[in-house]
Design a binder for these strands. Structure first.
Lengths: 209, 209
DNA sequence: CTTGAAACTATACATGTATGTCGTTATAAT
DNA sequence: ATTATAACGACATACATGTATAGTTTCAAG
């Protein structure tokens, strides 16, 4: 017999649940969020939530994928021809993210990466590794494109530069979450990042900017 | 009547418990460690453990302080006159730490910083902020000393450079914990760090090295 | 050497919270 | 009206916490 509701309905419902869960995770982090919290937020019964997700790690991974989807779309959207500008623009985006770090998924994400079984059980969470590699690849491609166009003269491997950039920003995000924007000196640190990037990739457009 | 054991004994016992706890936290992280786990590791009864510590956060803070003590002694010990060498040496120390990241307190520490009530209750954990500031100060002083001796020509504020260094290394540690030494490209990232540091502080001893 | 305070053990307890399942009820499609 | 199934919420289970009790060991003061 026909299902009681359409596939469309179920997909929408699931997406709704993901949004509610995202709200809770943003507020409470991963570790201190229970299935109950999500049920309360979404006004949904225990049984219903468990019919959509096996457990809370599953919920979080779905939230994470949903959020990442948006980021990917950001990268797709920015398709200018000035690579330096594009790079700066991405970094600026990260600065804005840091500015409202308390309203982001950062804490939950960091907690999840640390506290889920992941570290001992890496094979069960291929997404985490995939996620990192994808980000690195996107940045590396940006740098490579600039190099081909002779806009950049990278002084080190572009992959390493990409990883360096990500390490720094990750660290800065966590420090800022813990200590606040002022104490961490976010602005000054970004100034230094730009300084080092200029040395690292010697953008030709430097003077024009 | 006189106490049954000396203060000395109690201090030693406490230190022992801290060491056992440290071992557990290193293996299981903060979030997944229970008081019971520590009792088992230390072969101590419930009552005893609770007579030394109020709760698990208290235990962890003591472990953290104990570990930090060692670091401080490291800084005290290295009192050379070549500041660049000294800086490099500290960074090298961090690289070694990252190499054995799975046998360190990193995970537990990061979990604690993120998951304890800290973020919502910063006043109750002054140590965390103090800890960061102290590290920054030590690095800044190193840079300043080099500047005074005209060994360095910092291109940015030394405080900001210190914070930049810490952000990067923090980020690198976490990335490495998650993805492993190889995938994170630790060596290459350190190469980049050195490159940027040279540009940032223009050490005069560069050629001599 | 005796002795008694206290350090320690072992375990029970009350409490609280989270988990995942399962039988029941409500409902939308046919 | 019938029926598949979405949604509900009680339930059994598990585990951690911090306290409390009773009994045992230990060691330093007297």
């Amino acid at each position: 017999m026909a299902p009681k509701v359409s596939e469309e309905y179920k997909r929408e419902r699931k997406k709704d649940l993901i949004k509610f869960a995202g709200k809770v995770f943003t507020e409470k982090g991963f570790v201190h969020t229970s299935m109950q919290d999500i049920m309360d937020e979404a006004n949904v019964s225990r049984g219903t939530l468990y019919s959509y997700f096996d457990n809370i790690e599953h919920v979080f991974l779905e939230v994470l994928k949903y959020e990442d989807q948006k980021d990917i779309e950001y990268f797709k959207a920015t398709n200018g021809d000035n690579m330096w500008k594009q790079l700066i623009s991405w970094i600026e985006e990260q600065r804005l993210y840091i500015q409202k770090i308390d309203q982001t998924l950062l804490r939950a994400r960091a907690e999840f990466f640390l506290s889920c079984n992941y570290a001992n059980d890496k094979n069960n969470y291929p997404y985490i590794s995939k996620r990192y590699n994808q980000l690195i690849r996107l940045i590396k491609e940006m740098l490579d494109k600039g190099k081909v166009k002779d806009e950049f003269r990278p002084q080190q491997s572009t992959e390493a530069i990409a990883k360096y950039l990500v390490s720094f920003i990750n660290g800065l995000m966590l420090d800022t979450f813990q200590l606040g924007y002022e104490q961490t000196g976010v602005e000054e640190q970004f100034a230094i990042l730009f300084f080092t990037l200029e040395k690292l990739i010697s953008p030709i457009t430097l003077n024009k900017e």
